[in-house]
């Protein structure tokens, strides 16, 4: 029999997440469901989830300045993005996959649907992945992404950001989010960022860090991630 999750650290903290319909972000109006989510007891279906670890990444996958290089280095400002992935109790999420994607330094994605009139970079693809270490740490080397215009409203620009995708230990801990850069004036105008409740917004903004900065090579940013959990394991799973 499925078991109900106890309220507390296991549950999704809706006050930390954006609503499904945020009218200022126009695409949500016809795409966000209107009826309340139906609470269900967590069974093995929810307390298991995709398992992707070290076998799913290659040696260069974490280095976006090299993993698509053809005849040189990508243009733009090299940066290190590093951080820890933990659950709400502060326990490291070790050995778990982190996938990222982003625009190039000019604000252009390698994507058929990106119509922005900015140059592609033949040496930059904008996709990477890595696996967290025993302390939940990850580290990417990449190019600082550029801002780009989008059609949401007049003169709308997305602040530079890096997309993150993580599974965590269970289906319930799944997270897709975006990391932003500190001090960016575009944040105050971005309806996607502003859809997050105010108290939680700062969690999406990386910190500049001299400790992570590599002298003479690349500025460093720290983006720590907290996944929902820990979650209980159901006691019974008899066939």
């Amino acid at each position: 029999m499925p078991q109900r999750l106890s309220p507390g650290p296991g549950s999704r903290d809706w006050s930390s997440h954006p609503p499904l319909i945020a009218p200022a972000y126009k695409s949500t109006r016809l795409r966000g469901p209107t009826r309340p989510l139906v609470p269900i007891p967590a069974s093995l279906s929810e307390l298991t989830g995709p398992v992707y670890g070290h076998e799913s990444v290659g040696p260069c996958d974490h280095d976006l300045t090299k993993n698509a290089a053809r005849d040189g280095e990508p243009l733009g400002e090299r940066i290190v993005v590093a951080g820890r992935v933990r659950d709400e109790a502060g326990r490291p999420i070790a050995g778990h996959l982190v996938e990222v994607w982003q625009a190039n330094a000019a604000g252009r994605y390698v994507h058929k649907a990106d119509g922005h009139d900015a140059p592609l970079d033949p040496n930059f693809f904008g996709a990477g992945r890595t696996v967290t270490d025993a302390e939940g740490r990850y580290r990417f080397l990449t190019i600082r992404p550029g801002a780009y215009p989008w059609g949401n409203h007049d003169n709308a620009w997305r602040p530079p950001h890096i997309h993150f995708s993580l599974f965590g230990p269970t289906l319930a801990s799944r997270l897709v989010t975006q990391m932003y850069f500190p001090g960016d004036p575009l944040l105050a105008h971005d309806p996607i960022y502003l859809a997050v409740p105010e108290k939680a917004r700062a969690r999406l903004v990386a910190d500049f860090s001299l400790d992570v900065t590599e002298p003479g090579f690349a500025l460093g940013y720290v983006f720590d991630i907290v996944l929902r959990g820990p979650l209980e394991t159901p006691m019974e799973h008899a066939p």
Binding site: A89, A113, G126, A127, I192, A200
Partner: peptide, 22 residues
């Protein structure tokens, strides 16, 4: 007990194909 705030979700956006379903 220590309780860290959950990292908020953001949209996957329109440009995920090259990495998630290449």
């Amino acid at each position: 007990p220590l309780r860290l705030g959950q990292t908020p979700s953001q949209t996957v956006g329109p440009f995920f194909h090259p990495v998630l379903v290449p």
